[in-house]
Design a protein around this nucleic acid. Structure first.
Length: 287
DNA sequence: ACGACTGTTATACC
DNA sequence: GGGTATAACAGTCG
């Protein structure tokens, strides 16, 4: 489900709900989704029990985000890094839920917080939760080590973005999805920012002029906060922490609109495959 | 019913 | 080394 705006929306929701709360019990129903070693795909009951043991009794002191990763912070210094991949969801229920909807068959991890319950659901089970003993361990972990600039951070300047694109070999779309030049864009927002900047996603990343890099930079700086403000894009499984749906999808100008008339001209939007992903653009409005 | 599709990304090839 | 296929998996759509 989530690209940066959706993950950030979840982070803001989590801050309101779990800060200062103690983890009374943890249930790991899908052992393969957790790890403490970074060996993400290893499946074992021992790992599940170890995750539960490590987190039980911990008190939430913060929730941060790096790229599309959520980082739960505990007072002890321990951390949980969560990546939702395609279909992960965090859902919080204030009281012991009486509706009986959760846990469901796609609920894989349950955090009981005393006066509420945090569920991790994931239909396709690509996501994972990794625990670490300290902030330093998280920072040097393999999943965070090679990430590019945070698009909403001070380090994401036009000059650095331009220089970074110049060094890349592949298509612009592939580079935007790679999380190397800038992080947080996925298939939706990569297409949306390319359209807003008037640049074709099929262009070689290194071929962008400084002016085009500047347009793309500005599109990223504008579109991501706008999407966060509207609660993200709910296409299929994405929901906020309270299961409400985001409203940015109705502002999508290209994603999911292949064949429709371009909002900037009369041409039908082209739908192709680039970097292995469905990609939509306008051949007139994007150069 | 079946194949193609899906908001991700690590890995394996040619 | 870039580009593409594949894999992890379940559900939905035409």
């Amino acid at each position: 489900m989530p690209e940066l705006p959706e993950v950030e929306n979840l982070r803001l929701g989590l801050l309101k709900k779990i800060l200062g709360k103690r983890v009374k019990r943890v249930f790991v129903r899908a052992p393969k989704m957790v790890s403490g070693s970074g060996n993400i795909r290893e499946s074992s009951q021992k790992k599940a029990r170890e995750f539960e043991k490590q987190i039980t009794g911990e008190i939430f002191s913060g929730v941060s985000r790096r790229a599309k990763n959520l980082i739960f912070e505990f007072q002890s210094g321990k951390r949980i890094l969560a990546h939702l991949k395609m279909s992960g969801q965090f859902i919080y229920k204030d009281a012991k839920n009486d509706q009986g909807e959760l846990p469901g068959k796609h609920t894989h991890i349950i955090f009981e917080l005393g006066d509420g319950v945090l569920y991790y659901n994931d239909i396709r089970t690509f996501g994972y939760l990794l625990y670490f003993q300290s902030e330093e361990e998280v920072a040097k972990s393999a999943v965070l080590r090679d990430l590019g600039a945070e698009p909403l951070g001070a380090e994401f300047t036009v000059r650095r973005f331009f220089d970074s694109l110049k060094k890349k070999k592949g298509k612009l779309k592939a580079v935007l999805l790679s999380q190397k030049a800038v992080v947080g864009l996925g298939n939706i927002y990569a297409d949306e920012v390319c359209f807003a900047a008037g640049v074709r996603p099929t262009r070689s990343a290194a071929s962008l002029s400084l002016e085009e890099a500047d347009k793309l930079h500005r599109a990223i700086k504008k579109i991501l906060p706008r999407a966060i403000k509207l609660g993200g894009s709910s296409i299929s499984t994405y929901t906020a922490l309270d299961e409400s749906r985001g409203n940015y999808a109705r502002e999508h100008l290209v994603y999911g609109r292949g064949g429709e008339k371009c909002s900037g001209c009369e041409a039908p939007l082209r739908k192709i495959v680039a970097a292995g992903r469905t990609t939509v653009f306008c051949k007139n409005c994007q150069k």
